[in-house]
Write a protein that binds this DNA or RNA. Structure first.
Lengths: 349, 349
DNA sequence: TCTACTTGCTGCATCGATTGTGCAGATGTT
DNA sequence: AACATCTGCACAATCGATGCAGCAAGTAGA
């Protein structure tokens, strides 16, 4: 039942068409004019190739040409709105160029990241995009040794061009909005704004924390260490931390800057155990965007990062000559709350 | 600055170690015992290889062995909770086996799907997983010609083993829950339950619609054509359709079965313009799960598909001998609402 | 008619790793 | 000592596509 016809090669086509393998190769490729193959010959060969269901063996071609047609991208994880958007854009742009994208996830583990980069080098990828690198220096070292063009995305490296989201600006604007919203009620805010989630050794988080500090400092409210709770990305730890914080303060703080969707998921786990009334005096912001999070029953200020823009810029840089070590910033977008306490959804009735 | 050291090959290692290339190849591989290479020689060669930063050229190996070490997977899109979970699981399982996953998205376009499968065949992938195939027959034809083992996931094909979510059961249970919840208030439900979203030519949607019909038929409420609104996956069209429906009925129907997260996003766009009070008499279910959607201010019954289980089963089938044409079902999980009207979050205060 | 050039194609080496075959030298057997 | 066996390695063919160098025929120019 299952036919095991060996895939046909240029040698098969050569035999069937009476031409030589090199003629077949030229005829099937782009440069048959340069090689002075008669148009009639080209047509015959192509017809036979189609009949035989021929397709180029990319391993052989890659071996000969020392390029594979593959382009690699490393992301921390697939299962994430921001990174999967990057994957989607990356795939589209790669295909536009006739390249085949290979996307691997490192789980934010430096060892795994190195292993992946090595593997991709083994497969002779033509370019490499590294998003959220955990060890940019090591990556650059490996790519240099393999003479491989690479670009860092979202987290910069010093050995290659980098394209990052403007985390500082995004967080600066978000913090300002939180401050503004908090004071809008007219009464003096009763306590401080807290920053929760993420990892302060991570570049993006560090930028956001810096912006958070600066805004508050400019507003004459210098940030205390306890206001920065970089408890990682796991929902569970965010739940624990926000609960502990509410416990310490006796209530929800007047403002919360949540540093990722996963942390927000955790925060929400705690908030949902509180009466909605107790949220009225708090303003919530989340760095990163989710359409459902935008429809919660209390207003949430969000920041949407421009995944497509990041990848577009990264491609531009990697294809550019000269291949410069510049750092490009891409602006994120502020998303105003979709729901308000007094919107229909909020049940004023 | 940028060093362009050509990557070292077994010939370089051979020259440096005084051994022959074939000895080097054997020494670096797994079968040096079978080839009777002295342990001391192996150690020397490996040391030199490490010093030189040698890594196998997978194109050459693949050409020779007619296998690439790559495993392909086609998904409709990356930017989706369900499919990106599949990617994550696929990647993990592939790496456990020392394979390199290549994940491509077809955008649900049959032409693109064919092109991708052809490309993956060109790269001599060892196995191919096709999720949500749009043209399974064509895929099987191509894979047969290339003698390539493949498995269909989430949408079955007749030419290869298939692993699908038990959409019928998932939808059956969800519909039953909606019915039960609707009648729990004691009063006779004032109108019918509606099914919205998805594409009725799509296998998964067809199964779910069938289940929806069956449950209602069994409950003595045969489904009218107008109750099935398969308006696709785009949020916009779901918004339009739910709005139109509410218009026709004069109010929200007493039950809504939403067939995908994207459609739910659209439905939510309309619901959020209504007073929450008007949702009290409706029960909402969504096939597929999102953590934020679970925390809306009205209860939402959800179904979580087991992406990991699907991939695990798919891998089991593709590696199994004999390679049978069976259809495996994986059970989805019913997720009860996280929020209720009378839960703290719902603002009874 | 003889050289000069063009056209259309073929031959062959090459990319790097793998693997069947074979060949010395060492060791063991009687 | 003569023969069998084993150990450790080298040689060369091979996978399929590519591209340089070159060759025979045809055409043009003098």
């Amino acid at each position: 039942m299952i036919r095991a016809t060996r895939k046909s090669t240029i040698y098969d086509i050569a035999r069937l068409s009476g031409a030589s393998p090199s003629t077949v190769s030229a005829a099937l490729g782009e440069n048959w004019r340069k090689r002075r193959i008669a148009e009639a010959t080209v047509e015959t060969i192509r017809r036979i190739a189609t009949e035989q269901g021929y397709s180029t063996n990319m391993q052989a071609r890659g071996l000969r040409k020392a390029r594979s047609g593959l382009v690699g991208m490393v992301i921390p994880l697939h299962d994430n709105r921001f990174f999967s958007s990057m994957s989607q854009s990356f795939e589209a742009l790669a295909r536009d160029r006739g390249q085949v994208p290979v996307i691997a996830s490192s789980m934010r583990d430096p060892t795994e990241e190195r292993r992946i980069v090595e593997t991709l080098i083994s497969y002779a990828v033509d370019y490499l995009f590294i998003a959220g690198a955990t060890d940019p220096e090591a990556v650059t070292a490996m790519c240099r040794a393999a003479d491989l063009r690479h670009v860092f995305v979202d987290l910069p490296g010093r050995g290659a061009p980098s394209v990052v989201s403007d985390n500082y600006k995004g967080a600066y604007d978000l913090t300002q909005r939180l401050l503004a919203d908090r004071t809008i009620s007219g009464q003096t805010p009763r306590d401080r704004i807290y920053f929760i989630g993420g990892d302060d050794t991570d570049y993006a988080s560090a930028c956001r924390i810096a912006a958070f500090r600066d805004v508050l400092a400019n507003a004459g409210q210098p940030v205390l260490p306890e206001q920065i709770i970089a408890c990682g990305y796991a929902p569970r730890s965010a739940t624990r931390e926000i609960a502990a914080l509410c416990d310490r303060l006796g209530s929800l703080p007047s403002g919360v800057f949540v540093n990722s969707l996963t942390a927000f998921e955790g925060v929400l786990g705690h908030l949902s155990s509180l009466p909605l009334e107790s949220l009225r005096n708090s303003v919530i912001g989340c760095y990163d965007y989710d359409p459902f999070a935008a429809y919660l029953q209390f207003p949430v200020h969000m920041v949407r990062q421009d995944a497509h823009g990041l990848i577009r810029e990264a491609y531009r840089m990697i294809e550019e000559d000269p291949y410069d070590l510049v750092l490009t910033m891409v602006e994120p977008e502020q998303i105003a709350p979709r729901t308000y306490y007094d919107s229909p959804f909020s049940d004023r009735g």
